[in-house]
């Protein structure tokens, strides 16, 4: 295996039985890359991350971080990374600053000035007891802990869960800044638009298997929108049906519904000159996207 990869897995498998788990994952994330790990709930994202963290053990296969074995060299691995878990730990009555001091000392000490900067950016009050934090503030504390030691790798399991839009934007900025400084980021999410904000490349996992790895540009072809057009007069139906990326066209009274994959440009081009009264579009959930996109495809794992 090459040492230049930040993360590399080979046939990594964790089988919980009954088809649940993670199967034969071959994945490589380059140093300095921001990699989005997308999948619906229960697809195996957190299992992958917990295997990388050495918290659970694989049935077979291997996982390496910066060339270090995630299980046998777990301690050395964790000197290289910051981590946000998918579930909040419960630190009970400890205050935020005590949690930072407690876990920060385990990672080699705390730079108070940096902690202050992080808290100001995320608007987090460290004087409160952990049990009194809202779930959003608990998530902010976990982000502070992940960024605490300015690690070369960030492993973030659904990091924006519970954050308000302003803090989400701040988090995206923090990730971009970290990337600019050479940090590798492995970020799981079940929200397609979220990974588009920050990721260079995306891996898509479904039912425990990696089904696709793509660059952000390539991602557009799996992205779909449900579009509804209200119109007066006639619409060029044949041209709409023939437009690139448009499918499932139905008409009811003066309302047309269709699905658009990728760019809107072909659809807008054929609508030019038509009497469109209203046009609305919404992005389906990732589950719906997968159902649409992969419904007919066999579950074939891919390597990247």
């Amino acid at each position: 295996m090459k040492v230049t990869s930040a993360i590399r897995t080979e046939k990594l498998t964790k089988d919980y039985g009954s088809g649940r788990g993670l199967f034969d994952l071959d994945l490589e994330v380059a140093e300095g890359e921001v990699f989005g790990y997308l999948g619906p709930n229960g697809a195996g994202k957190s299992t992958t991350i917990r295997l990388l963290m050495g918290l659970i053990h694989p049935n077979r296969g291997a996982a390496e971080i910066f060339g270090l074995d995630c299980r046998r060299q777990a301690v050395e691995v964790k000197r290289q990374l910051g981590y946000v878990p998918g579930e909040h730990p419960d630190f009970g009555g400890l205050r935020g600053r005590e949690v930072v001091a407690y876990l920060g000392a385990m990672g080699g000490g705390v730079d108070q000035a940096w902690v202050k900067t992080l808290c100001e950016r995320l608007k987090l009050d460290l004087s409160q007891r952990f049990r009194d934090y809202s779930s959003g503030n608990k998530q902010k504390l976990l982000l502070v802990l992940a960024f605490l030691h300015k690690p070369p790798l960030l492993i973030l399991d659904e990091p924006t869960s519970g954050l308000d839009p302003l803090n989400q934007q701040e988090f995206y900025t923090m990730v971009r800044e970290a990337r600019d400084q050479g940090t590798t980021v492995f970020l799981s999410s079940h929200i397609l638009s979220e990974v588009e904000h920050v990721c260079d490349r995306v891996g898509i996992i479904r039912a425990g298997s990696l089904v696709r790895v793509a660059s952000l540009a390539e991602l557009h072809d799996i992205r779909l929108h449900r579009v509804e057009i209200e119109f007066a007069g006639e619409l060029p139906l044949d041209r709409i049906r023939a437009a690139e990326g448009v499918s499932d066209v139905t008409i009811e009274d003066h309302s047309l519904r269709c699905i658009v994959r990728g760019s809107f440009a072909p659809l807008l081009a054929v609508l030019a000159g038509a009497q469109v009264v209203n046009l609305s579009s919404h992005e389906p959930t990732l589950e719906e996207t997968f159902l649409e996109y992969y419904a007919a495809e066999p579950k074939e794992p891919v390597a990247c």
């Binding site: 050495g54 964790k78 579930e87 730990p89 419960d90 009970g92 385990m106 990672g107």
Partner: peptide, 14 residues
């Protein structure tokens, strides 16, 4: 059960 052990093990601890 409260995830504190996982949080500790996410640090460089044996």
């Amino acid at each position: 059960s409260q995830g504190v052990l996982s949080a500790e093990l996410s640090r460089p601890r044996r």
